[in-house]
Amino acid sequence: MPDAAGALPVDTAPPATRMQRLQGRVILGVKADEHGVTRLDRLYQSGSARLRLPKGPDLEGVLINTGGGLTGGDVLETEVLVAAGARATVTTQAAEKVYRASAGEARVLNRLSVAGRLDWLPQETILFDGARLCRRLEVDMADGATLLAAEAMVFGRTARGERVTHGLFRDEWRIRRGGRLVYADAVRLAGDIDAQLARAAVAGGACATASCLYVAPDAEARVEAVRAVLPRTDGVKAGASAWNGLLALRLVARDGQALLRALAPMIEHLRGLPVPRVWRC
């Protein structure tokens, strides 16, 4: 309304600040040359997402988030294409940290196309109190292809005794082989995540979890050997099952360090190689 002098009031409130959000995308394609050696075929990177290929006997891609972590509204996308006869490992430079979100969710989408062999082995994700993360893994495999995929989650900075008493974690896996859906898994924890993890049917009080999936022609034949080397230490519980050309592992642990100490030997057993070099740095 005009004031007594007839002038319209001036809005002195500061304009709403639009927070900058992280967006990044990586596309990696590999193929086998005429000698059967895996070579880089395609590499695209944008935004805060980068990929490096350290020198070594095998092709190993290391994903880097130059943003230093994720929060609400951030988006990371990764696409990996492995041609027939090729073998690749994709991991991350460090643990991914998901910070408290003021609005929205951090979104991570990983798409994998595998005609050869792919070991998808990112380092653990750490969910801070108040964080919100929606993550999806989509895999299209050829008949006869091999996939080893592992994802580890740590809820709270366990070394500081932090607990996630409010937040969101949604994780979806969809695996198709020869165009047919062969594996579908979904996890949703919302609100007081710490209280939900305390339930016996969820994690029994553990605050670190991992899922590992091995999809290969020999998957079912390896289940007894895998069960024989399951961790039997205090603070870690693990189980393995196999069906329809898949072998699935679940682990829960009292903290992130205990989880990784138990997970690494399982990965090495299934891939026949040490864990990626960045895991040992």
Rank of each mutant, 00 (worst) to 15 (best):
T125F: 03
L148D: 00
R135S: 07
A84W: 03
V182A: 00
V98H: 02
R136Y: 09
T38Q: 02
R254F: 09
A225E: 10
A32N: 01
L22T: 14
V75Y: 06
Q23C: 13
L168R: 08
S241H: 06
E268P: 09
L273E: 13
R157T: 12
L213I: 13
T71I: 12
V226S: 00
A106Q: 03
Q20R: 06
P15R: 04
I175V: 15
L22S: 13
A190R: 04
S48I: 11
A4V: 11
D129E: 12
A203L: 06
A264H: 06
G191T: 08
G130E: 04
T158E: 07
A103K: 04
A95F: 08
A242R: 02
Q123G: 09
R170M: 13
D3M: 10
L181Q: 12
A142T: 09
G69S: 10
C207G: 13
D74V: 08
V26I: 14
A195F: 07
G29Y: 04
H269T: 13
E151R: 01
R227W: 11
L137C: 08
D3E: 12
A210V: 11
R177L: 14
L8C: 07
D129I: 07
L249I: 12
R174V: 15
H35A: 14
A210S: 15
E79P: 03
R21K: 11
C134A: 15
R135K: 11
N110E: 05
E151S: 03
A101W: 06
D58C: 01
R18A: 15
T71P: 02
Q123D: 02
T38Y: 00
A145L: 04
N110H: 05
R42H: 14
G239D: 11
T165C: 09
T89N: 06
L230A: 05
S102W: 03
A145I: 01
A238W: 01
R21A: 14
L112N: 09
E60D: 06
N110I: 09
R280N: 14
A49K: 04
A195G: 07
V154P: 00
L189C: 06
A248G: 14
D143Y: 03
T17G: 12
D33L: 09
K31Q: 15
R222I: 08
V75I: 12
F155C: 07
L112T: 05
D234G: 11
I267M: 11
A152D: 00
T66M: 09
R176F: 09
G167S: 03
L63F: 07
C207S: 15
G130T: 10
V164C: 14
T91D: 11
V62C: 08
A264Y: 07
R277L: 10
D74K: 01
R111C: 15
S48H: 04
A262N: 00
G85V: 05
G104P: 06
E77T: 10
E224S: 11
G130M: 05
R39M: 15
T38A: 05
D171R: 05
A219E: 04
P14D: 11
S102M: 09
E220H: 00
V164G: 05
L59C: 02
L273R: 06
R100S: 13
W279N: 08
A95W: 04
A83L: 01
W120P: 00
A190F: 04
L197N: 01
R111I: 13
E105N: 00
A225V: 03
G156E: 01
A159V: 14
